[in-house]
Write a protein that binds this DNA or RNA. Structure first.
Length: 206
DNA sequence: TAAAGGATTTTCT
DNA sequence: GAAAATCCTTTAC
């Protein structure tokens, strides 16, 4: 069975990081490769609203560097970074061009291409294929070759509108105690999904 | 189920 | 040279 997805418009990403992070819940992340298509329903995100956030790769103290340069691109740009020297993580750049803000995709629920995901992450149970930012990129074949791509342009990597996650199911949580600037980081997740990586307490309505 | 520690390499100070 | 937007294994309860 093949589902037809329509990429989200740039206007979707041209808003506050927290708004985009909340509304990405329920949307579909679609990744094509020579091996086939993988798609997943986004169930966990994290907002990096701008330079005032000390935890952001583009924090004021850091400025614009070769690494975070894609974050200064137009809304809908792909920003991929290597974390802890091991894991590739996928972000959607949000807000106006030259304002470095992004939303980290932290977890998805497999919708299409499950067999391909199993091949890419052998020996894992299905719920462990994509329940983390570094896991989902490996399962879906997402890497640095896709840097600066436009998520609004369709294949090979884009995000499509999905079902709206009801307010009662969406959790807005504040990440605490991770690093010095962590107070500024906001996470969102769908509490109904087994694929969520971190289930922190709700700190606000979402 | 939860907590703790090692892995591994890029980036910036 | 230290820290990092994490993952995985081990250990304990």
């Amino acid at each position: 069975m093949s589902v037809r997805y329509r990429p989200l418009p740039a206007s979707f990403f041209d808003r506050r990081a927290e708004t985009v992070a909340r509304e990405l819940l329920g949307c579909f992340l679609v990744s094509d490769s020579a091996e086939g298509r993988c798609a997943g329903c986004i169930v966990e995100t994290e907002a990096y609203p701008g330079p005032h956030d000390p935890a952001s790769h583009a924090a004021r103290s850091v400025g614009r560097t070769a690494r975070n340069d894609p974050m200064f691109g137009p809304p809908g740009t792909v920003y991929i970074h290597l974390n802890y020297g091991v894991h590739w993580c996928l972000n959607a750049v949000v807000g106006r061009e030259d304002h470095p803000a992004a939303v980290l995709i932290r977890a998805v629920e497999p919708v299409e291409g499950l067999e391909l995901m199993r091949l890419r992450r052998p020996g894992r149970r299905d719920r462990e294929l994509t329940n983390g930012p570094g896991k989902l990129t490996k399962a879906m074949g997402i890497g640095p070759a896709l840097q600066r791509l436009r998520l609004t342009a369709g294949p090979p990597l884009f995000i499509a509108l999905g079902e709206v996650v009801p307010a009662g199911a969406a959790v807005r949580a504040q990440r605490v105690g991770i690093s010095k600037g962590a107070e500024a980081e906001w996470r969102f997740y769908d509490r109904r999904s087994p694929w969520v990586s971190r289930r922190d307490r709700r700190v606000d309505g979402a």
